[in-house]
């Protein structure tokens, strides 16, 4: 079971690479913001999988909750700013 979680972690890291391609390549700036949102969702799940792998879930779940809330505030601020500024 532990090796299974290890392979899940590796696969999630590779998927983050796919989103990173979109962040670096994106034609408009909104593509980049969208890619960052996808990466943060992956990171929340990756935290919990890491916690299960090292058998300390109760600590890592608190970290992922805080990360989700901070991500909400950051993404809303960026979206609001871009909405007022218009297309660069």
């Amino acid at each position: 079971m532990t090796t299974f979680f290890f392979y899940v972690m590796v696969l999630l890291a590779i998927l983050i690479g796919a989103y990173l391609y979109r962040v670096l390549q994106g034609p408009t700036i909104f593509d980049r913001v969208l890619g960052l949102n996808g990466i943060s969702t992956k990171a929340i799940i990756l935290f919990i999988v890491i916690g299960t792998y090292s058998e300390r879930v109760n600590m890592f779940i608190d970290i992922s909750t805080g990360y989700a809330l901070i991500n909400l505030v950051g993404a809303l601020a960026v979206a609001k700013y871009l909405e007022q500024k218009g297309l660069p």
């Binding site: 408009t28 909104f30 949102n37 991500n71 993404a75 809303l76 979206a79 609001k80 871009l82």
Partner: peptide, 16 residues
């Protein structure tokens, strides 16, 4: 939270 973030990003893209 995720629908809120997606809606904010897409609305910013649509309005600009």
């Amino acid at each position: 939270l995720n629908p809120v973030i997606a809606h904010a990003t897409i609305r910013a893209a649509f309005r600009s």
